[in-house]
């Protein structure tokens, strides 16, 4: 079995450095791929996936597909995985997936789509490889790796290329349409708020609302400030705290009150 592996490796012209590289990177990639499925934290999974992508990129480069390897890192590791990580970090450190199905019939639809895609891929790869002897990367790279790739993409496969890019643009636009709900009125900006403060009915709070707390005795967000008239100011505390009932009366912290007690 082992010999078979070695032989299958030597089908192409596997030079020694390349084989060494393969036997170092491939186990690492497989381990990382397994780890991706097994680790608990979503961010660790994402990181391991990024590692798999980088090892694949190195293997591509070693095989002579320089452009593919670099683009793999730029696009997948640099952009796609980074966006993934961005979402994961926003969602939270320890959030676990909920297993409740929100959309009815999502599971059968997903399975059908998966089977369909696998079928498509198999037929495509089969048609591309069966009865088509490999050309070898040297022949492809004869006029330079990038030039060869560009030649293929923009002459023979230009139609497929354009269709794929149209599909990607549609998907990007779709996600933007779904994410952005049209607001009936534009959000009030700092400028609007400032104008409203000065041109409104009263100038009482033109300089800002009073801060919470009673100076030097209880300086916290849950105590209304005392106004110059000695009355607690409602404007100094958050409406949310008030609704939750998390407000302490400021009376006990009044200076005169304590003075009286001491006397």
């Amino acid at each position: 079995m082992h010999n078979l592996f070695i032989q299958s490796l030597q089908v192409g012209r596997t030079a020694t450095p390349e084989a060494v590289q393969f036997w170092i990177l491939a186990p690492l990639a497989v381990l990382a791929a397994l780890g991706m499925l097994l680790v608990k934290k979503a961010v660790h999974s994402a990181l391991l996936l990024a590692w798999v992508m980088i090892t694949l990129a190195i293997l591509y480069i070693a095989q002579g597909a320089l452009f593919l390897g670099i683009v793999q890192v730029v696009v997948y590791t640099g952009a796609v995985m980074m966006l993934f990580l961005f979402i994961l970090m926003l969602v939270g450190v320890d959030s676990s997936d909920s297993l409740v199905e929100n959309i009815k019939g999502q599971r059968p639809a997903a399975i059908a789509a998966a089977v369909g895609i696998v079928g498509l891929l198999l037929s495509l790869i089969g048609r591309a490889t069966l009865n088509h002897p490999a050309t070898g990367v040297e022949a492809i790279n004869a006029n330079g790796n990038v030039q060869g790739l560009a030649n293929e993409l923009f002459t023979q496969y230009v139609w497929a290329f354009e269709v794929v890019s149209a599909l990607l643009i549609t998907a990007a636009l779709g996600s933007m349409v779904l994410a952005h709900s049209q607001k009936p009125k534009s959000r009030t900006s700092q400028r609007d708020l400032s104008i409203a403060r000065f041109r409104g009915d009263s100038l009482a709070h033109a300089a800002g609302l009073p801060g919470s707390g009673v100076y030097a005795l209880h300086n916290a967000v849950d105590v209304p400030a005392l106004g110059p008239d000695g009355q607690p100011s409602d404007a100094s505390i958050s409406k949310v705290l008030e609704a939750r009932g998390d407000i302490i009366a400021s009376k006990p912290f009044e200076l005169t009150h304590i003075d009286e007690e001491e006397n």
Binding site: I54, A57, L66, F67, I70, V71, V73, V74, T77, G78, A79, M82, G144, N145, V146
Partner: peptide
């Protein structure tokens, strides 16, 4: 001296 040297710098930066 990579034929895609500048892209390589971009790739490394993104990592």
């Amino acid at each position: 001296d990579l034929p895609v040297g500048v892209l390589y710098v971009l790739a490394i930066a993104s990592v």
